[in-house]
């Protein structure tokens, strides 16, 4: 048996290219000769073959669902859409409200329209998008978030970057309520403004989304039925969305909105914490 012209490291560097038939004929012959005589390289090559056989044997058997109608629905967001039907406030939420000592119901409205900061179709789109987001968030926060980010060109950012991009430091990036941790922060380019969004996770694995925007009126859910109440003494608008609550309140010249709260106690916790002087 003659000496091998190639050393093992050289062969191994090119072993995938050899295996995949991507080498020129002369290089291929050299590697073939080495592998024929070198048990270690031959064993590595055998492993590549077995892996390939494994992949071929267990191709995914799931078929893609036909989501064309969903794709079209998303693509046609640009067309005028009617406001979604109002959903009555859940009894569970009201029971929670009664239990939350710090919450004083001030006004219960039959149908309160959240104020809009722009009218017409753009409002309808935004309201429809955020209604969809809030409902989806209750079922599948990850999916809801993906769609929102795609719709509003969302960018994940480091906490320090958010303040630089917005020219103000969002309240939610300074401190989070006890029992919650800040998971992700995004910048969203919405029709109304550029908005900071934070995803928070509780100790028991629940998620909420907190939005902070620098316009002066909350309007995101169109003509949905709402409750106006005082949470920790602060006027707060509450909407029931798929069994979860959305709370929105003014803080200085900005608006904070929490999506995914379990009950008014949750929202009050956020209002209390984020309204403390240390938090702006």
């Amino acid at each position: 048996m003659g000496a091998l012209r190639l050393e093992c490291p050289e062969v191994r560097d090119r072993l995938s290219a050899y295996f995949d038939g991507e080498l020129a004929p002369d290089q291929r012959s050299e590697i073939a000769l080495h592998v024929e005589r070198c048990p270690l390289c031959a064993e590595e090559l055998r492993g590549f073959t077995k892996l390939s056989e494994l992949v071929a044997a267990v191709q995914p058997d799931s078929q893609a669902a036909d989501c064309w109608s969903d794709v079209v629905a998303q693509l046609e967001r640009g067309r005028p859409t009617p406001p979604p039907p109002a959903v009555p406030l859940g009894r569970g939420a009201l029971r929670s409200a009664a239990l939350a000592a710090s919450v004083v119901l001030a006004v219960i409205a039959g149908t309160f329209a959240f104020q809009t900061w722009f009218g017409g179709h753009r409002h309808n789109h935004l309201a429809a998008d955020l209604t969809r987001y809030a409902r989806e968030f209750a079922e599948n926060p990850g999916r809801a978030q993906r769609l929102l980010l795609a719709t509003y060109d969302g960018q994940p950012l480091e906490i320090q970057q958010v303040g630089q991009r917005l020219n103000y430091e969002p309240t939610i990036t300074r401190s989070v309520p006890p029992g919650w941790k800040l998971k992700e922060v995004y910048l969203l380019h919405m029709p109304c403004c550029t908005c900071a969004q934070a995803i928070l996770e509780s100790e028991d694995g629940r998620c909420v989304a907190v939005f902070e925007h620098d316009t002066d009126q909350a309007m995101w859910f169109g003509d949905r039925q709402s409750i106006d109440c005082l949470c920790d003494g602060k006027p707060t608008s509450i909407v029931d969305m798929g069994g979860q609550l959305v709370g929105s309140w003014q803080q200085g010249n900005r608006t904070l909105t929490v999506i995914g709260a379990r009950d008014l106690k949750d929202i009050t916790q956020f209002v209390m914490h984020l309204s403390r002087p240390a938090n702006g």
Binding site: P60, A64, A65, D66, C67, W68, D70, Q74, R143, R146
Partner: peptide
């Protein structure tokens, strides 16, 4: 869409593959 879905199944798992495939086409 089937080809994209097959890749997504392997990349992110069956549970997320439909959503992500839809997202890709959007």
């Amino acid at each position: 869409h089937q080809q994209v879905h097959r890749l997504m199944v392997r990349m992110v798992g069956v549970q997320e593959a439909d959503d992500l495939t839809q997202q890709v086409f959007l």
